Amino acid sequence: MNLILFDDPLVRTALLPFTFTRPVADIRVGILTIREKWERWLQTQASFQTVDYLQKKYPARSGNSNLLINGAVCPDENLVAAIRNMQPHTFLAQGTRLIAALEPTEEMSASNTIEYTEAITVIDKTWKIFKENAAQLKLDFKHITAGRKSASIDDKHTVIYGSPEDIFVEEGVYIRAAILNAESGPIYLGKKSIVQEGAIIRGSFALCEGAHINMGAKIRGDVTVGPFSKVGGEVSTSVIFGYSNKAHDGFLGASVLGEWCNLGADTNTSNLKNNYDHVKLWDHTKQGYEPTGLQFCGLMMGDHSKCSINTMFNTGTMVDVSSNVFGHGFPPNYVPSFGWGGASGFETYQLNKALETAERVMARRNVTFSDVDKEILSHIFETSALSRRWEKK
């Protein structure tokens, strides 16, 4: 069976800035990306049906028997069983949301559609990435570790609380003089990850392959640090996709960072308003601020964006792709792609300079900044021009 994960156009727009640079299913929530979850559950490789400018990097592969699954929907045991029981030329839906289609040859209708009545997890808002992270992390942990034995922690100065089965260590992990508390959720340490001296970690927590937790870090739970990222300071209820750095002191809470982001030393995010009111967040589908219904919501930062030392982000801030935020005071709660500035104003981060920086940053991690990557960022630069309101002044 050929698995294709498709983008719902409305959901994709609602998940910007993270879907500027990836299909919906390549969003990380829990330990794995949504794509990796489906590949593990169905024991197959997936491809993507996404927008044209991303399709070259994320191609779709068609086969004799195609199973299309909504890339915003996370798998679980009941949903996977329902999909396995689907007959050819049928659809699986919940209300108006299409979940899956097996060998579709005609339009959806009442006669060829199965209504799925169990609860599903759908990542259709940016803030749902961190809100659903704890539950997804626990589910991924159970699936990844089933039938496997954890590597041992031999460091005599590392202190462990909770059940041993709630801590799983892959091969090659380096850990020294840390505190791991799995009483409130599992802790997963990925292949060749590093936990340095004095780090305090509460579950649920995932440290993915090659990622670092720096000396004295305080991880307060429900946190995912994606592959090859480096994290220090205080972090709570947040997801970092991969190859990003929050290496220094400062607080990151109820937030999501894409790939190739960097937070300068002592950057702090507010995730709770002083009046304890619900947080509004920029929504690309509305081109304005929309209520999240959440009391806690911090920073949403797209790929390749960065900020300087001592940056302060207000509650419910969104920074799009390849922006550079700096200066005193709070920057606006919405920073469009390729913004350069802060509270005192913005100008446009010129494309050639942004591409040079991206290539330099990726080369430091031995990752090639390909021509396709350049095309994607160039497309975002062109299509986001209307969002950069300062260009019209």
Score class of each variant (00 low, 15 high):
L272Q: 13
T13F: 08
Y334F: 15
R84A: 14
P331N: 08
H304A: 15
I213R: 01
M1L: 13
G226F: 03
T44V: 12
I83V: 07
E77G: 08
G329L: 09
A46R: 12
L16D: 06
E170G: 09
A110P: 04
L54H: 00
T267M: 04
I114G: 01
N352E: 15
S229H: 00
R176T: 12
G203N: 01
Q55K: 10
G190N: 08
G221P: 05
S109Q: 13
S62W: 12
R148H: 13
E359V: 06
W260M: 05
G342A: 01
W127T: 11
G233K: 04
D8R: 03
V11C: 04
L351K: 08
C208L: 08
D222R: 04
A146D: 09
L98R: 11
F6M: 02
S65G: 00
I175M: 03
G172H: 10
P336D: 00
T33D: 02
D155E: 13
L79V: 14
V319Y: 01
G232W: 05
F381W: 03
S65Q: 13
V223P: 01
G342Q: 00
I114N: 06
I120L: 15
S204F: 03
D320M: 12
G345L: 03
E234C: 02
K128M: 06
G345R: 10
W340K: 06
H157Y: 13
S109N: 15
N268V: 02
S204V: 04
Q295D: 11
